[in-house]
Write a protein that binds this DNA or RNA. Structure first.
Lengths: 221, 221
DNA sequence: TTACGCAGGTGTAAAATTACACCCTCTGAT
DNA sequence: ATCAGAGGGTGTAATTTTACACCTGCGTAA
């Protein structure tokens, strides 16, 4: 009951082998290349997208001033709030890196949810957890200035890479749209971070040099 | 399946009379006065708060620079994301007006969720819908300037009052914390709205004079 | 090869927002 | 009756952020 979710994977791991077979017999594996559109806003919700690997961006509009809602990493369901609350997806999902996705059949998954109360409870826990996390992420971004928000974004990426050197698969413009500041603010803050020896960056590659000072800026200011 | 929720009330209306009796035999009715703390951050999650009447504010911290997450109106569950994903509430809830709350027993509600798949599906739909709505609200606020965000907030209140004259149970400071701008920005924009004949305001009372122009500002700028 | 577009990058001016200082009024406590 | 505190309100200065202008390098399509 009080179990903490680490991702949507746990929901699928609950299924018995029979249930698993039923679900997967009607599902498809899809691969998307970096930059490809996975879900277009307005698409009817007939399937459930499970992100097996890669990074996905959710945005309210496709172009040109799209506001980026959220980033999803592997093990998550994509746009799960829309699946059971609206007939159409209310945002677009785009692959930031190459992505491997399992396209589950919504009807079959719904049938399993109704039949298996362990699954439905795990699923309730999962969507509660994922939304709580999203809410926290948004609030943390909201209370920061541009430098703090950028440092926070970089720190969040570091957590998913487990190394001080990694590639952020976002343009400066996209980073700006995630943190809610202008492209120039992102560039100027990155330049400041470099000058102050907090990071080294070259295009999309980034190396964190002084993680503790970066964390400090991410916390506020 | 594709049914659109109007609030959390629908979940409770699904229960059979036996189930209803079981749930309510272990629940308590509570009344809070305007300003009272309903849930303190860190409180263990043993109950489910259902808001029968009134307006509630959720915030990350109590004092002094608390960031206000969201407003809840009657018919909603309070802090429902925390109930099934964490052991403690991760924010505080405060009554903005006098509130009437039904305090449901979490164990009993969980038992009913497991036993009644119609309820569990309705509940999944409900939390999806409420989170989707919250996400939309946040995104709309995020893309606006201070005037647009304030106009948007006022318009949202109007929807819940169904009249052009109503009371907003928030101080200017609280309005500022909801829309993410300073107290002075709120005051200056209110003064501008008055000067331009969009609204009339006196303390917490507000009368909307030119609803269409206010909506226009709320949409952007 | 050229030329175009895209992304990174930077300086400066303009605009928006915040911070500060201070005013008034009301209300509740001493 | 008076005093303190909270909330509404406004002007001005400081700060932050955006907008604009422009430069660079790189890849790629003609």
């Amino acid at each position: 009951m009080e179990q903490i979710h680490d991702s949507g994977k746990r929901c699928l791991s609950i299924l018995s082998s029979d249930e698993n077979e039923e679900l997967y017999s009607k599902s498809n594996s899809l691969n998307f290349e970096a930059g490809e559109l996975i879900i277009k806003k307005g698409t009817p919700v007939n399937n459930i997208y499970f992100l097996k690997s890669g990074i996905v961006e959710l945005s309210l509009n496709e172009a040109p001033h799209r506001q980026i809602l959220n980033l999803l990493f592997d093990g998550e369901f994509i746009g799960i709030n829309c699946v059971f609350s609206t007939a159409q997806y209310r945002f677009s999902a785009r692959a930031l890196t190459n992505c491997s996705i399992e396209l589950l059949d919504k009807e079959t998954f719904t049938k399993l949810l109704k039949a298996n109360s362990t699954l439905s409870m795990a699923f309730i826990q999962y969507i509660s957890w994922v939304n709580e996390g999203f809410l926290n992420w948004q609030m943390k971004l909201k209370e920061k200035n541009s430098a703090g928000a950028l440092a926070f974004l970089i720190s969040e990426f570091q957590k998913n890479f487990d190394s001080n050197s990694f590639e952020i698969p976002l343009t400066r413009q996209e980073m700006a749209r995630i943190i809610g500041f202008s492209k120039e603010s992102v560039l100027k803050n990155l330049a400041d971070f470099r000058k102050e020896g907090l990071i080294d960056s070259n295009g999309k590659s980034i190396t964190i040099i002084d993680a503790s000072r970066l964390e400090e800026i991410a916390k506020y200011g």
